[in-house]
Design a protein around this nucleic acid. Structure first.
Length: 830
DNA sequence: CTCTCCCT
């Protein structure tokens, strides 16, 4: 132990903490900080009669750290060194160092904010930035500043921006310590064009096996990619003695053990792993690491209140951590399946959990601490506003907070249970209904990994898991389910039963009540069947489960397991629920109201009395009749939403609208006739003309011309006829209609011959606007477009005339059009 | 053939 690098910095640390309240230790991997630092303080005078609390992010790490420290003292765990975690505690009367896992620290702080006889709190692996470590530090800092000025805090981390933590801890000194690992060469192998991560990984595995000695560790984002890479490798030839070992959290324990165990003599191991091998598990003998640079992560959507799994690039810190796994026992090589340039664009660090997770638990803990605004505490990264607001809303819905945001008695009971607030609420409601035994089992099933693997896992029905668990409880037979998962669920459910003071042996009764119990936990995820496996959820989202399973045909379900996807979410775990139970047990949340609405199927206004649960309509009575006022208001809304084309725009009506639009373009005091303006003012101009109407067919009878004219007074109508006439009488005597479809330039389309004798362009708009003339051939083909008739006669006419004379020799094409007789026939009548 | 990783 003497030769560990950490030994050199221990005197510094001791000196600093003698008169400072906080310190930061940044130690690279292999420095030995976890087991060397805590015992170093045991003899310090300021720690006399007090204990050390060290926070570890994982149970396995906490137990092994305690075991190692105890063995160094020649003791067993539970004497000077102990640990405390959920359902497993080894602490004695003389214990002075207690290694705890994350939830435990929060509970200890909540039950005694002054932390009793604790003299030093150590946060190990703080760079992982887990939600509980961030929360624990925030609470410990407040305890220190308000109640315990003598409490010391030591933050230990592998890689971390030391300055930011130092300033959070009142400019605490930072001690750095080198690590002791072997050098690892980094090789960048950019993916070739369209190759998938699996194909590139397989290619790199063959290369590593050829170039390097020892075992190979491959980092892939998830189970699917692991399976594909395995197939990819198995389909080609591998050097003799090569064994493939998948490794991920959902994998049954024996297979995980096989991946971690050293390769047997004569074999070389290729471990295909998720990020579980980045920190949680150590695999001896690895000399090559292949990193796809991807990781799967859960991001919480505050908008939907659901999690979403996404595949994202790793951070530089994470890539370095993965690389380090090749240099634990000897020098190694790390093949990165991306380019040097791409590496520069990777984020420095992983996003802290507090920034993208569900904050319901955090918000409940803060409420219990007496804080409504998280800004009252000191954070490295404060909880983001949107998820925090969503969390507060959920806690209010569950009755954990009152309207003012303060914790209720119910909320206090929930917090103590040490489960997600949704689950805690379910357990308490179930206890009131004498259904605690079933609720405890459901809670355990939801908190542990799925009992089912392979095709069985594709059935979303949670009650099948309850049945598998009961079978295991009765006969200890796993019946195809994962035995280690069954044991974990059983342990967990017993612990919940104990907390609810229910007898451990008590059976769950009628398991068809599962849906009802779960609906207390997920009031926003009660689904109403929509066909083809699709459901509308009470929270307003659409969601779908795999078709073909019986559960997909239940009229009502509750969905604890969902994955938020674009469009509609995916349901992974659910249970059926009866309408009767829904109406009875969610009576407080039901909203009964009379509703007048647009039935798009029949295209008519209808009225109904509905019973709503969030976005769901549980019951409706359609024998209601809408009043004329209600009908009118719904019709106007439909026209506003669907557009004015629902109205009968006949030719004359359209021309009237266009003429009025022309007037508006000339005179600002005339009404705006654009779609937008008309839609905004339906109430004023259309309402009087739809009285008594109820549907689309009725709308076809609207007297639209009258409605438009109704917008004008008598004087304006006279002005309209004068300044925007429907027709113009041309020299030949014909009344030619004006086309206003472009209100900026009304068009008069007229045969050229009919205009003989007219010098100037006809004008409208009180003489201000010359019309745009479309001068036509006798066959009404446009020959010329002009708004300057005088210039036409003088110039272009003579060219046009030649052309016309050729094509229409019998017609009259005079040399002096201004003195010729206009005509609407072939030649003027003599 | 839908599922990263932890923890009270």
């Amino acid at each position: 132990m003497k030769q560990l690098p950490i030994m050199q910095v221990l005197p510094d640390l001791k000196r600093i903490l003698t008169d400072r309240a906080a310190a930061i230790l940044i130690a690279e991997p292999g420095a030995g900080k976890t087991t060397a630092v805590p015992p170093a303080f045991l003899e310090e005078p300021w720690l006399a009669g007090k204990t050390i609390l060290m926070l570890e992010p994982r149970r396995l790490a906490a137990r092994s750290a305690a075991a190692y420290m105890a063995s160094c003292l020649g003791e067993s765990v539970g004497q000077t060194i102990g640990y405390r975690m959920r359902m497993d505690t080894k602490v004695g009367r003389n214990t002075r160092i207690v290694v705890v896992t994350e939830g435990v620290l929060t509970r200890m702080l909540q039950s005694d904010p002054s932390l009793g006889d604790v003299g030093l709190v150590i946060f190990d692996e703080f760079h992982e930035r887990s939600l509980h470590a961030d929360l624990g530090l925030a609470l410990a800092l407040e305890a220190q500043s308000v109640l315990r000025e003598d409490l010391r805090i030591l933050v230990m981390s592998a890689t971390l921006d030391g300055e930011r933590v130092a300033s959070l801890l009142g400019e605490a000194p930072v001690v750095r310590c080198p690590g002791r690992t072997y050098p690892v060469e980094t090789v960048y192998v950019p993916e070739a064009g369209n190759a998938t991560a699996e194909k590139s990984a397989a290619t790199a595995v063959r290369r590593a096996l050829a170039e390097q000695p020892g075992d190979v560790l491959v980092f892939l984002p998830g189970e699917r990619e692991i399976r594909r890479t395995e197939q990819e490798l198995a389909s080609g030839s591998l050097p003799p003695g090569t064994v493939l070992r998948p490794l991920y959290g959902q994998l049954p324990q024996p297979q995980q053990d096989a991946a971690v165990a050293p390769a047997v003599e004569g074999e070389r191991k290729v471990v295909l792993a998720t990020s579980i091998a980045e920190t949680s598990l150590t695999i001896e003998g690895v000399r090559s690491v292949i990193d796809t640079g991807l990781r799967r992560t859960q991001v919480f959507s505050a908008r939907t209140g659901m999690p979403r799994l996404t595949t994202v690039p790793v951070s530089k810190a994470s890539a370095d951590q993965r690389r380090g796994r090749a240099g634990r026992t000897a020098p190694g090589v790390c093949y990165r399946l991306w380019s040097r340039e791409a590496h520069d664009h990777l984020p420095d660090d992983n996003v802290p959990e507090i920034m993208e997770t569900d904050l319901a638990q955090l918000a409940l803990e803060l409420a219990l601490w007496g804080v409504r605004d998280p800004g009252a505490l000191a954070w490295l990264d404060a909880p983001p506003a949107a998820p925090y607001a969503q969390a507060m809303a959920l806690l209010r819905q569950l009755g954990a907070l009152d309207a003012g945001g303060s914790i209720t008695l119910h909320g206090r009971s929930m917090a103590v249970l040490g489960a997600h607030p949704r689950i805690a609420h379910m357990l308490l409601r179930a206890a009131d209904l004498a259904a605690a035994p079933l609720a405890a089992r459901l809670a355990a099933l939801l908190q542990e990994r799925d009992l089912f693997r392979g095709p069985a896992a594709l059935d979303s029905d949670l009650t099948l898991r309850v049945e598998a668990l009961l079978g295991f409880e009765r006969s200890a037979s796993s019946g195809g389910a994962d035995p280690a998962a069954l044991r974990a669920v059983q342990r967990e459910s017993r612990s919940f039963l104990a907390q609810l003071r229910a007898a451990p042996g008590e059976g769950p009764g009628d398991i068809s009540r599962s849906g009802l119990l779960l609906s207390f936990a997920y009031p926003d995820r009660i689904g109403q069947e929509r066909g083809n496996g699709a459901f509308l959820l009470s929270g307003g989202r659409g969601a779908a489960m795999r078709e073909g399973q019986p559960l997909a045909r239940s009229p009502y379900i509750v969905a604890p397991g969902v994955d938020d996807r674009a469009g509609q979410s995916r349901i992974m775990l659910a249970a059926a629920l009866s309408e009767q139970d829904l109406l009875k047990h969610h009576a407080d949340s039901l909203l009964e109201e009379r509703e007048v609405y647009w039935d798009s199927e029949s295209g008519s206004v209808k009225a109904r009395r509905v019973t709503r649960l969030g976005a769901l309509i549980l019951k409706q009575m359609t024998h209601e009749r809408a009043t004329p006022e209600e009908t009118e208001s719904v019709l106007l809304k439909v026209i506003a939403a669907e557009g004015l084309q629902l109205l009968p725009w006949e030719k004359g009506t359209l021309q009237l609208r266009q003429r009025m639009e022309f007037m508006h373009s000339q005179r600002a005091d005339w009404p705006d006739m654009s779609d937008e303006a008309l839609t905004d003012t339906l109430e004023e101009w259309l309402a009087p003309y739809i009285q008594g109407m109820r549907n689309l067919r009725d709308l076809q009878r609207v007297k639209l011309t009258q409605a438009l004219e109704g917008m004008l007074d008598w004087n304006s109508r006279q002005q309209l006829n004068k300044e925007a006439p429907t027709h113009i009488t041309v020299p030949s005597g014909s009344r030619v209609p004006l086309d206003y479809s472009n209100p900026g330039a009304p068009v008069l389309a007229v045969r050229l011959q009919e205009m003989f004798g007219q010098t100037d362009t006809p004008r409208i708009g009180g003489g201000k606007v010359p019309v745009l003339l479309h001068l036509l051939s006798p066959a009404r083909r446009p020959m010329q477009i002009t708004s300057d008739l005088a210039s036409f006669w003088q110039n272009t006419y003579f060219e046009v005339k030649k052309d016309l004379k050729g094509r229409y020799p019998k017609h009259y094409w005079p040399d002096n059009p201004l003195e010729a007789v206009p005509t609407n026939r072939t030649r003027p009548t003599k």
